[in-house]
Design a protein around this nucleic acid. Structure first.
Lengths: 181, 181
DNA sequence: CCCTTTTCACCTAGGTGGTAAGAT
DNA sequence: ATCTTACCACCTAGGTGAAAAGGG
């Protein structure tokens, strides 16, 4: 998820309180983070690289979960059972960033030359009648500092450009010499 | 949907009794049907061409519908509200046919050299407790004779091959002369 | 002999950063 | 001067039928 602030105090629902999320490709994220990660934003929308993906655990296998509350990006598999979310890596590889304020493709709208912190929310779908009253108890949020990035329309740091070219398969056309393993 | 036979007698739920489905690309289907449509099946799975797609109307915009009962292919958007299903064409373009009896990719398993009739089911998700008792009332099935086809591992009719090459964009590499409009 | 599998060149579709032009 | 856009060559990814090889 992207926007909105955390919940107030109060105990969490048992369907989310044991939820855990582990960032995938953590070492690649850290490599970018050391240089100051940048993500391109375009009018049509641009994917993130590295891709934001997490491995989930601690969910109730039989309960329903969508993957975000409020004005945020919903994972396309939502809603699904906890068992399904935990079965494999939850990947936001199709997610795109845009600087177009009038975007209607469901892309995430960001301001260029601003810093962002991706956030991930696990939301239990509460079957109770007035479940809105328990909304603050029914989700758990995760934030990985190494995924922070600067939104840009063109790369500012040439070392970021080179690391993207070296690690993103779609940029292979710009590689110079030796192939990577 | 694909397999299973129709329901017994009995009145339909009002959420499905007014449902209507119109086949898209009907003239292309008829053109193939006149020659005797064939669909390639492979071990890895092959798409259908023409694609099976329908335009829905007459659903309850606020009710939930998955798109098939029993051992059938579920549309990947399932479940969704009637309003969502009617908003745009329901396309099974990602659907694949296979002759691999051990397939675990969710493809439709068919026997080569046999004829098939695609069937489409609209299923109302009944919120009542013992909704199984009403299962026979909660869906409506559609069958378009012009979408019948023979499953094959290699085309039997050369005129079918030529019509596929002429009408499927992915087969453009086999076209000879003039481009089609 | 008939049917199936494998491999291939040729497409569609779309994700890269570079580059030059455009906007403020 | 700085940031944004449009277009491009070069990729990945994967859907075509042809052709040749494989199998019963």
């Amino acid at each position: 998820g992207w926007a909105g602030e955390g919940p107030g105090a109060g105990g969490k629902n048992r369907r989310v309180c044991h939820a855990a999320a582990r960032l995938e490709m953590g070492s690649l994220w850290e490599e970018f983070n050391r240089l100051g990660t940048e993500m391109i934003v375009t009018k049509a929308g641009r994917r993130m690289f590295p891709t934001f993906q997490v491995k989930l655990s601690g969910l109730d296998p039989l309960a329903d979960y969508p993957s975000a509350p409020g004005r945020v990006h919903f994972h396309p598999d939502s809603p699904a059972k906890g068992a399904q979310w935990m079965r494999q890596i939850v990947s936001f590889d199709k997610l795109k960033l845009t600087n177009n304020l009038l975007d209607d493709n469901g892309h995430i709208i960001l301001n260029s030359m601003h810093r962002y912190q991706p956030r991930f929310h696990v939301v239990f779908v509460d079957p109770r009648r007035d479940s809105e009253r328990f909304a603050h108890q029914n989700f758990k949020s995760f934030s990985f500092p190494e995924t922070q990035f600067m939104a840009v329309t063109a790369y500012q740091n040439h070392r970021i450009t080179q690391l993207k070219i070296a690690s993103n398969p779609f940029a292979k056309g710009f590689r110079d010499g030796d192939p990577d393993p």
